[in-house]
Amino acid sequence: MKLETLDALLAARAAKRAVALVTALDGHSEWVVEPGAPPSGLPADLLEAVRQALASDRSGVVEHDGRDWFVQAHNPPLRMLIVGAVHITQALAPMAAMAGYEVTVIDPRRGFAAAERFPGVRVDGDWPDEALERLVPDARTAVVTLTHDPKLDDPALHVALRSEAFYIGCLGSRRTHAARLDRLRNAGFDDADCARLHGPAGLDLGARSPAEIAVSVLAETVRALRRPEG
C-alpha cells in the first residue's frame, strides 16, 4: 500500500466520507474510490462492487479481467448519541466506545453532564433537539434517550425520527412508552414512525443494574445494525 493511499483513507474518515479501497491481489495496483466521484479509468464492474461493499458494509474479493481484486469498505464511523447523562450512560458510553462507536452524551442539565463523570467521552450541554439538529444523525448513527423526562427525550425523538438513524431506543417502562407513543402521534408522527422506536430500549435479558441495562441496549443496537431485517 502506498503511503498516499493510507493518507487518503484517513482523510476520508476524518471527513466522514464513505470510500472503498480496491487492491489487486497480484501486485501494487490500488484505488481509493468514492462512489460519487470515481477515479477515471476504474472499470464499471469494480465501481459496482464498491457500491455493493459500502451498502452492505462488507469487504470481499471480486474478479475482473482475470485478476482478483480486494474491495474493502471504509464506511464512516458508527456514532451513538445518548440523551441523558444518567447512571446507565456511565456504563453505556464506554461500552459503546469499545464496540467502535463515536459516543456523544447530551444533557443540558448542569451537574449531570459533568465531565468527570464521563472521562474520555464527548459531552454536549445543549438542549437535545438543538444538539441532534447540529449532529445530524445518519444511517450509521444510533440515538438512545435515557432521561425519562419528556421535556428532554421527546424533542430529541422528533429530530431522530426525521433522520436516517438506524436505531432509536427509549428507556422507560411499557406504560411510559405507551404514553410516549401517544404524545408522538399527537405531534403528527404516524405508525411507521412509531414502529422505528425501540421501547423499552434493550433486549430482554432480565437486566437489573445500570451496567446490565447498558449491555442490553448495546446488544439491541448491534442487532439493529447487523441484522436489520429483525
Partner: peptide
C-alpha cells in the same frame, strides 16, 4: 478526548491511524 472517533467499521483498535 474522544475515544472511538478514529475507529473504522467497528474495529476496536485504530490500525490505520497507528500505521500512519
Amino acid at each position: 478526548a474522544t475515544p472511538g472517533s478514529g475507529e473504522l467499521s467497528g474495529d476496536v483498535e485504530d490500525v490505520l491511524a497507528t500505521a500512519r
